[in-house]
Amino acid sequence: MGRACLVDTTICTGCRACQVACKAWNDLPAEKTKFRSKGDGYENPPALSGRSYTRITFHEILDDGGNLDRSVFVKRQCMHCEEPACVSACPVAALQKVKGESGSAGAVVYDVEKCLGCRYCMLACPFNVPTFEWDKTVPKIQKCTFCADRLEAAEPANPQVNDQPLAGESLERFEDTQRMPACAKACPTGAIEFGEREDLIAEARRRIEEKKKQRGSWQYVDHIYGEKEVGGTSWLYLANVPFDKLGFRMDLGERPYPEYTKLALDAVPPAVIGLGAALGAIHWISNRRAAAEEADGPETPTGREGEQAEAASEPEKPTSGEGQRAV
């Protein structure tokens, strides 16, 4: 089914080690930011950008009396949809969902060698994730890669301990700790869990149910964001405040985005044939009629009053000199 990450926002402390690890692994330059005291609190950078694939958003949840009830931190990045809008949008297949047995199965990856820079993916994405290098002469689309390169191969390639190469079980154990996105690897609290998508959904459900048994404790919202949204995503979220208070759109529906265009595009081949048949038939009828009129002369009697009137009001209508006519 593919790899996924489960973000448990009740565990996240907002330390932003994931942001730092992401920049380090993906070699992204720093961004000049400024203190933002209004609205979204202390979060920085203010938005995903060509230099930031991920960021933590800060949410101050107030109680009924208007006092701070709790702070919730949400890691945002590409959701790596199961059926991505961006992949269906791209006219040159520069965006692809990795499928099959590959280590990075589940990731939505981008290939600049194919990209046109048309930016349709940016508008198609229901989560507004893809960004653009506006300051570059030949810009790329930028977005979280799910560290597909890490998932494909553990780094370093030939690990050694005390000058001895790792092998067998120890090598496998080492690789398991490395083959995950840099952010998940860096997270000190375990708020980002990496694994197979179906396992993580089961784990998320288990956590929700577990909490329900602890009476008097806070409870998870009984919803795994990303399980069904837009057909499912590879990043899944748990929260203990309603998701719409955390900047998640709840109105996106469960329909996979590619289906929105599928009907229109599937109609193209039959439409071409159908139009061809219809236009051919119309051309046939109208031209035979015109030819018959020309053969009979414009004074054809019965049943053609309308056309006769038209012909009369149109002295330019050629009855002679037909042979000279070109387009």
Partner: peptide
């Protein structure tokens, strides 16, 4: 307008038939 104008011909060789922009 394109960010990668030198790739303007790519739809000729890449065939993602599911893309409206490709059409």
């Amino acid at each position: 307008d394109l960010g990668q104008p030198l790739h303007i011909w790519h739809p000729i060789i890449m065939w993602p038939e599911h893309s409206a922009m490709f059409e």
